[in-house]
Design a protein around this nucleic acid. Structure first.
Length: 247
DNA sequence: CCCTGATTCGC
DNA sequence: GCGAATCAGG
């Protein structure tokens, strides 16, 4: 009878009311957030929570670091004074201007990220394990997808030449005979999504990453396409994460 | 208008 | 801690 309880009455919160942030849900949120899914998609996928809840939780988890449309601006004099009752908990003066580093000008010519949304490449993971102090890629700018860009003079070779010819077909390595699930992701395996989240066969590439990038060499070639001469462009790759939702 | 994430603040 | 309300940019 305890077997029944174990099966039927599992302590896991169902998708009804009274849902809380269980470990699994937090983990899923983290992975999807880092994977580039939008808050709406994450909320939709998790179910039972609004996108605001997802964003709020993401912030509380401390993983707020992604290109936001409302970030690059900052005014020295209290730009966003909330309408909500703001009691006199703040002195009228001393706005304490942040010593914001002089961020470089945004370069609108992004070579990649053709997706309007829902397909932003993963925010560059901490360049910790992959790049020792040998050669630090000087970060000069941040692309729209959140990946790091470099100045023209700093063009190293981590970016695969993106052969205009053809890419070798993905070779499934024996290690990933099984599908790489969301929970299997780590900093060393390719997190390129295959299929749509929510579908039973949704999984990730799982290949070994191109060092310094969140994707394997093949998918780096898709995520970071070199600017080809005019007339040599190829049609944009299909969107990861399913693309626009149907409403 | 739609979308996005960020922030605030009452609960 | 949670998330609706709100803000603000694209």
């Amino acid at each position: 009878m305890e077997l029944f309880r174990a099966i039927l009455g599992s302590p896991r919160a169902k998708d009804g009311i009274g849902m809380s942030w269980t470990d699994e849900r937090i983990e899923k949120l983290t992975k999807m957030w880092e994977g580039g899914a939008t808050a709406s998609q994450i909320a939709d996928e998790l179910g039972g929570v609004s996108r605001n809840a997802v964003i709020g939780k993401a912030h509380r988890l401390g993983l707020k670091a992604r290109p936001s449309p409302v970030k690059a601006n900052e005014k020295p004099a209290r730009p966003a004074a909330p309408k909500k009752a703001k009691p006199a908990s703040e002195a009228p003066a001393a706005p304490a201007p942040k010593a914001e580093a002089p961020v470089v000008k945004p370069a609108p010519q992004a070579p990649a990220a053709p997706a309007p949304r829902a397909a932003a490449p993963a925010a560059a993971p901490a360049p910790a394990a992959d790049k020792p102090a040998s050669d630090q890629p000087r970060i000069v700018s941040v692309g729209p997808g959140g990946f790091l860009r470099q100045g023209p003079g700093d063009q190293q070779q981590p970016i695969p030449p993106a052969p205009p010819r053809r890419l070798v077909p993905a070779k499934p390595s024996p290690e990933i005979a099984d599908k790489t699930s969301l929970l299997d992701l780590n900093d060393r395996i390719c997190r390129w999504p295959m299929g749509h989240p929510g579908e039973p066969d949704f999984h990730f590439c799982g290949e070994k990453v191109n060092p310094g990038f969140p994707y394997c060499v093949d998918h780096c070639g898709r995520a970071y396409q070199a600017q080809l001469p005019r007339g040599a462009r190829r049609p944009p790759p299909p969107l990861p994460f399913g693309g626009p939702r149907v409403r």
